[in-house]
Amino acid sequence: MSDKGSIDIDYLANLARIELTDKERELFSSQLADILGYFEQLNQVDVSGVEPMAHAFQVENVLREDESVEGFDANTAVEHAAAKRNHMVQVPKVVEG
């Protein structure tokens, strides 16, 4: 994590599917560099043998029985979609990729 400054902002924006303005690209690049620089201090800690923590309190086997209930009616499901047709959400042409 020492290659700060080498942030590929376009790669990240593409992964995150956010179109950035030139101003944002510049601003974020430099701010991210600062922040990643700040993160460097984590390198000073010895974490060997330390379990990573994915949950504040980890319990196990939180499961539900396989019982089914009624779902949304078709109108509710697509109520807030910006475009819809035949109770389905309409999107512009999907290009493969």
């Binding site: 179109e19 959400v89 999107v91 512009p92």
Partner: peptide
């Protein structure tokens, strides 16, 4: 921009819609 959020009016395809 697909199911319930703000959707851009300028998108030409589904991928562009996200951006």
């Amino acid at each position: 921009g697909v199911r319930y959020t703000h959707r851009s009016k300028d998108a030409e395809n589904a991928i562009d819609l996200y951006f």
